[in-house]
Simulated scan of single mutants.
Amino acid sequence: MNDSGSHPRHDEDRWNRLTEKQRACLDLLIDHRTSKEIARLLDISKHTVDQRLNAARDSLGAQDRNETAFIYRQLKQIYDRVTYDAVEVPRRPALVRSKFPNGSPPNLMDLHDKAADLGRPSSNRFSFRGLWRRDHNSPARVWIMTAMLVVTLLVLLAGLGIAQALNQLISG
Rank of each mutant, 00 (worst) to 15 (best):
M1C: 02
N2P: 03
S4M: 13
S4A: 11
S4K: 10
G5L: 02
G5V: 03
G5R: 10
H7R: 10
H7M: 02
H7E: 01
H7I: 08
P8V: 10
P8Q: 08
R9Q: 03
H10K: 06
D11V: 00
E12D: 02
E12G: 10
D13K: 14
R14C: 10
N16S: 15
R17E: 11
L18H: 04
T19P: 04
K21Y: 05
R23Q: 05
A24S: 12
A24L: 09
C25I: 02
C25D: 13
I30T: 13
D31T: 04
R33E: 02
T34F: 11
K36I: 09
E37H: 10
L42T: 08
D43C: 12
S45V: 01
S45R: 05
S45I: 03
S45Y: 11
H47L: 08
Q51D: 13
Q51K: 13
Q51F: 00
N54D: 07
N54G: 10
N54L: 13
D58H: 00
S59G: 15
S59Y: 15
S59F: 13
A62N: 04
Q63N: 15
D64E: 11
N66C: 12
N66D: 15
F70G: 04
I71C: 02
I71M: 08
Y72V: 05
Y72L: 06
Y72T: 09
R73Y: 03
L75G: 01
K76N: 01
R81G: 03
Y84Q: 12
Y84G: 15
Y84I: 11
D85L: 02
D85S: 11
R91L: 06
R92D: 14
R92L: 07
P93A: 01
A94H: 14
L95I: 03
L95E: 14
S98M: 14
K99N: 15
K99S: 13
K99L: 10
F100M: 06
P101R: 13
G103D: 01
P106G: 01
N107P: 03
L111W: 15
K114L: 02
K114N: 08
A115S: 15
A116T: 02
A116P: 06
D117F: 13
G119F: 05
G119C: 09
R120I: 08
R120G: 04
S123Y: 05
N124V: 12
F128V: 08
R129Y: 12
G130F: 00
D135C: 03
N137Q: 13
A140S: 13
W143R: 10
W143T: 12
M148W: 01
M148H: 00
V150W: 14
V150Q: 12
V151R: 14
L154K: 02
L156Q: 02
G159Q: 03
A163P: 00
A165N: 04
L166E: 03
N167V: 08
Q168S: 09
Q168F: 09
L169N: 06
I170R: 03
S171K: 11
S171T: 13
